[in-house]
Simulated scan of single mutants.
Amino acid sequence: MSIQNSRIQPCLWFDDNLEEAAHFYTGIFPNSSIGHMSRYTDAGPGEPGTVMAGEFTLDGITFRGINGGPAFSFNEAISFSVSCKDQSEVDYYWDSLADGGEESVCGWLKDRFGLSWQIVPTRLYELVTDADPARAQAATKAMLGMRRIVVAELEAAVDAVT
């Protein structure tokens, strides 16, 4: 069963910027779109015309969102991981999602809305699970010293193992 046919979907709590976030994210990921946005009417409780809840799809995965106010905010306990085929993809997603946000370590960042992302080249998985424990350890150690994951630096660390 694919996630878009699943009864389980991520639902994100925004303060009051769900619509802005939906535009931001759909501008970054391919195969993305903004779905229905429910807006407050004169019946309240929000200002008429402002978004109450909505849906957006990122690379084929549908997210629900609500503008729930400032009671809750995102933290690192929940993150979304983006698997990247090469350094070019790593750089694209890192630069796009970190714009207005905050870089962290080991391929993690927070976007401008405070949502955490892991931008991970598939090559990292291959290197940290190398059959040679010394090579795997070298890749892991190199990764732990990085913010954005740089494939060439990982491979150089692994190649330096004798």
Score class of each variant (00 low, 15 high):
M1S: 14
N5E: 14
I8A: 15
I8R: 03
P10W: 07
W13V: 10
F14W: 10
A21E: 04
A21Q: 05
A22Y: 09
F24T: 10
Y25E: 10
T26S: 07
G27T: 06
P30G: 07
N31W: 05
S32I: 05
I34V: 15
I34R: 10
M37P: 04
R39P: 06
A43L: 14
G44D: 09
G44Y: 04
E47I: 09
A53I: 00
G54M: 04
F56L: 05
F56N: 01
F56A: 01
F56S: 01
T57W: 00
L58D: 00
G60L: 03
I61R: 06
R64N: 08
R64M: 13
I66W: 05
N67K: 09
G69C: 03
A71V: 05
F74E: 11
N75R: 08
A77P: 00
S79D: 02
S79Y: 12
S81M: 15
C84P: 02
C84I: 06
D86Y: 09
E89A: 11
Y92E: 03
W94Q: 07
D95G: 13
S96M: 11
L97R: 09
L97Q: 06
L97T: 03
D99Y: 07
E102T: 15
G107L: 13
G107N: 11
L109A: 04
F113E: 10
F113R: 00
F113G: 10
F113H: 07
V120P: 00
P121G: 07
L124W: 09
Y125C: 01
D132N: 15
A136G: 14
A138Q: 10
T140K: 08
T140M: 13
K141W: 01
G145Y: 01
M146N: 05
R148S: 12
V151T: 15
A152R: 14
E153N: 11
E155S: 05
V158I: 06
T162R: 14
T162P: 15
